[in-house]
């Protein structure tokens, strides 16, 4: 066999081994989780044959379904509000000069780097203590959505800002030159061009919210449990295949969301 060319990475055995290890580490736990969701055993340690009954059981579990619906509601609301806020922030930072712009840009990254546990505690304090005592903040979905928007919109802003940085401002100027107002130019020319990053940002916001445990744990009231929080409380008793089933559903929703977003982007480019 001839020696592989310099850039012919896939032809080297160690490169293939690396790739195999990479995928194994990344996906083996997930695959095992999915397989064991079909395990016909209460203990979920030894394989006892396939069954779908734990999906049925999960489906029949009202509190699980409620948590699931809560999670989806929060994720969708967070996606809409967070994306809107993130896109506006990114455009502001890209387009305009204003005092303390650098500081704003720095502060924007804080929710991304601050440990989630700190964010969670901060939210807890905000909704319980900082809020005037005589006014009780209802611990319902709204405060979870607010908490989620707080930590997801910077991700959207950073992603959209990244694409804006590479964008030629002449497109917008050209639109205005042809008679568009600033507002029209933004809608007609700017937004369509940053659509890919908006979709990517929205997707990140959706999945971050859907899977978030720590911050939700600190802000959830007794009647507003989300799926990750619910799964956590279930695991505290025992890891049953029902937990696996619920997790599998969560994974499938995420995969479908990613797939959909990729399709939307592909359709756009095939135009």
């Amino acid at each position: 066999m001839s020696k592989p060319a310099l850039l012919d990475y896939a032809a080297r055995w160690w490169m293939r081994l690396f790739l195999a290890m990479f995928f194994l580490l990344l996906y083996a736990p997930i695959v095992i989780l999915i397989i064991f969701s079909f395990n016909d055993s209460k203990r979920n340690i030894v394989w006892r044959g396939a069954t779908g009954k734990y999906y049925a059981k999960a489906w029949a579990n009202d509190s699980l379904i409620e948590a699931f619906i809560n999670s989806l509601t929060i994720a969708v609301a967070n996606m809409i509000v967070g994306t809107l806020l993130g896109v506006i922030t990114a455009i502001l930072l890209w387009r305009f000069r204003f005092p303390a712009k650098k500081a704003v840009e720095g502060v924007l990254a804080l929710p991304i780097v601050i440990p989630e546990i700190c964010m969670g505690v901060a939210m807890l304090v905000f909704f319980n203590k900082w809020w005037p005592n005589n006014l009780v903040w209802p611990l319902n979905l709204v405060n979870i959505i607010i908490a989620h928007v707080t930590f997801t919109f910077p991700f959207v802003a950073v992603i959209v800002r990244g694409q804006l940085a590479g964008l030629n401002r002449e497109f917008e100027l050209a639109a205005m030159d042809l008679g568009a107002s600033e507002w029209r130019a933004m809608i007609d020319v700017l937004l369509p061009q940053i659509k890919p990053s908006i979709i990517a940002g929205a997707l990140i916001a959706f999945t971050l919210s859907l899977e978030d445990f720590v911050i939700t744990y600190f802000t959830a009231g007794p009647d507003s449990i989300t799926l990750p929080v619910k799964i956590n409380s279930m695991v505290r008793f025992s890891v049953t295949p029902e937990v696996n089933a619920a997790s599998t559903i969560l994974i499938i929703i995420t995969i479908v969301a990613v797939w959909l977003a990729m399709r939307i982007q592909k359709e756009k480019t095939n135009g």
Partner: peptide, 28 residues
């Protein structure tokens, strides 16, 4: 600029990438 009877050909041409030729020309 949108109220001037002056138009500009930009250095990068700035042809809108998400519109076809016809839509680009019709935009104004």
């Amino acid at each position: 600029p949108n109220k001037r009877q002056i138009n500009m050909l930009f250095q990068s041409y700035a042809v809108f990438p998400h519109m076809n030729v016809e839509d680009n020309v019709a935009y104004g």
